[in-house]
Design a protein around this nucleic acid. Sequence first.
DNA 1: CAACCGCCCTGGGAGC
DNA 2: TGCTCCCAGGGCGGTT
Length: 277
Amino acid sequence: MPELPEVETTRRGIEPHLKNRIIQDIIVRQPSLRWLVPEHMASKYPGQKIIGVIRRGKYLLIQTSSKDHINATILIHLGMSGSLRILEQRDLPGKHDHIDILLDNNKLLRFHDPRRFGAFLDCPADEPLSHKLLAKLGPEPLSDDFSGEYLYQRSRNRTLSIKSFIMDSHVVVGLGNIYATETLFEAGIHPTLAAGKISRKRYASVVLQAKKIIDNAIQQGGTTLRDFVNVSGKPGYFKQQLKVYGRENQPCIYCQTLIRRLKQNQRSSWYCPQCQH
DNA sequence: CAACCGCCCTGGGAGC
DNA sequence: TGCTCCCAGGGCGGTT
């Protein structure tokens, strides 16, 4: 489920419930996620106070602090199928509810992840963002660092496709398959074009559309926020206005040409053969 | 270095 | 109903 807007929606949903709470316990039922959940986390974190939840790309960082002013940070990635919910401690765990962080108000944060591509890790104490998984990430898509000029410069001499290029988190974070597909559709760019051959002008369009789409999706994520955190645990992709993603053989909303699908690096791309070239 | 490909998993849906 | 196959929101790590 989670692309960047869903992760940001999750962050906004859980932070008010977590901030200033003391962690009572961490219960790990299934440590085999993308990487093994470190054993020491269950002993390190109880007693720590949560001071904030920040996001970097699709990673969430739960920052804590103890009486001795020792800071620590839990690093969470939701992978393909992960979700986080605030529940009561009396709510029994179900299938795929792998980790609970127990809070000091009879609530808990529950990590659910059927496919187990997610991650639950510990950051280096001194500088959490120096974690190996975070250190080389590209700029945030909504930041000023993500500009047409930046993409243009980074892409010179690159032969891979524009689709693969903008989905590379070391280039820019947060453009997953859905939003990369939608971005190229709105920018009118065929997904197989070589990244290194695309003009400044077209990259300016890519950036403009990506920002628009992600910003809009975050706004919409807000509408499903309550459900996401408290009840169903299902973010509403159905509520999103997807213009090309998943629409194979349906008419393009601009020109009525039938949308086509192709495979790039084992991921589907949908595109309009008329509008995107 | 850059590019590509396999793979970590479970579950849902289509087709037979 | 049940089997098999394909597909899915990610992205690391090994190989060429």
